[in-house]
Design a protein around this nucleic acid. Structure first.
Lengths: 142, 142
DNA sequence: GACGGAATGTTAGCGCGCTAATTACTTTGC
DNA sequence: GCAAAGTAATTAGCGCGCTAACATTCCGTC
């Protein structure tokens, strides 16, 4: 009971600190944690649409739109019109976003944050998180 | 490597969903997750100052100030001047905040979200989170 | 007792998540 | 072929985290 509150407190606190640290690192290349994550997904799925990206990341389209605007303004990505459907816009990385600096810095920061966690612990954590996600989904559909 | 990215993605996603669900539940009594957490800490430490509360929760004072303003405006807490120090202001719950509805709803929502996680899994998660927090702190002081 | 530094709280301004509502286009069904 | 329904992207507006900068009040030292 009280322990449960403590666990959720710890989760929230760690997530805040994680974001803060990641943002501080990402600042070196002109990014934030959220924007770096957007780039990472586009790198995996070049040409994806905004709706597709929002679904892939579990974000709402308006949230994503602002990141995409900022990333485009800063020269990390481009929006291209699609032939078949005038509503959709395909997203692509620029050379700037593909540069080793960006990807390496993100990878290194992530590794440092998870340093010392055994694969078993990571797997257990993933399993617990999935369970929590299921619980929330169940609550949601009721 | 890629698995680490997946783990952090899962963490971020679950935290977003957790906040969304908690906010939806808390709306019934006119609260949000963040504000419910503030009330919970004040309940444990009646008369705490804002700086003390910020430290206790790991939040920055300006972040807390807005929650306190809102909670005071909505009649959940009161600010009282302290005798010895004209800078400090002590925080107290009102009867409204102490009502069973508020505390029970928060407890129930938390329990539902963590339903089905064994004590061992919760402990392992806490341990892993502590490790991550240590890693972040180490990065920070460098 | 006056001065400089520390602590408390506040203000201003930004990033990132959300929902609700709008616009433009596509698809479906009659 | 056209109206209705659905989909992609956008706009507007809110909550919650942050940092930077400021006023006020204490406290320690001289």
């Amino acid at each position: 009971m009280n322990d449960d509150a403590h666990l959720i407190d710890a989760l929230l606190r760690v997530m805040r600190e994680l974001r803060r640290q990641f943002d501080a690192s990402a600042q070196e290349v002109g990014l934030t944690m959220s924007r770096a994550r957007v780039l990472a997904v586009i790198a995996r799925m070049e040409g994806i649409t905004q709706a597709g990206l929002a679904h892939e990341m579990g974000l709402e389209p308006p949230t994503l739109k602002r990141q995409i605007d900022a990333l485009e303004a800063d020269g990390f990505i481009t929006r291209k019109a699609l032939d078949g459907d005038a509503r959709k816009r395909a997203l692509h990385l620029t050379e700037k976003a593909r540069s080793a600096r960006v990807t390496r810095l993100v990878d290194e920061t992530r590794a440092e944050i998870l340093d010392g966690l055994s694969p078993e612990n990571k797997n257990r954590m993933r399993t617990s998180l999935e369970r929590i996600a299921e619980n929330i989904a169940r609550l949601n559909h009721r």
